[in-house]
Amino acid sequence: MADQILMVAVLISLLSIGVILIRFILGPSVLDRVVAFDTAGIIAISVIVLLAHMLERFIYVDVALVYGLLSFIGVLVVARYHERGL
């Protein structure tokens, strides 16, 4: 039973990433896309943690940490660049 509920949780999270992709395509400005990317990244971290439970691989939690770090730095770089250049 618990596994089915977790499956539903994964599906809802993936659906939200799909909804965010609509905003990513619509834009209209670069920073709107950056915000969409940031939100999708945070949700992806949680999906990776859930997958780590489903596949019984503890090491995937480290993947989630590194993914979060990289997406944070990416958002920071693009936003700073948009403000006044690096």
Binding site: I5, L6, V8, A9, V10, I12, S13, L15, S16, I17, V19, I20, I22, R23, V35, A36, T39, I43, S46, L50
Partner: peptide, 17 residues
């Protein structure tokens, strides 16, 4: 709890739209 978290994700995605 994981299900509640994913529902919050969905609502924030809806807010983004």
């Amino acid at each position: 709890l994981a299900l509640i978290g994913s529902i919050i994700f969905f609502l924030s995605a809806l807010g983004l739209i």
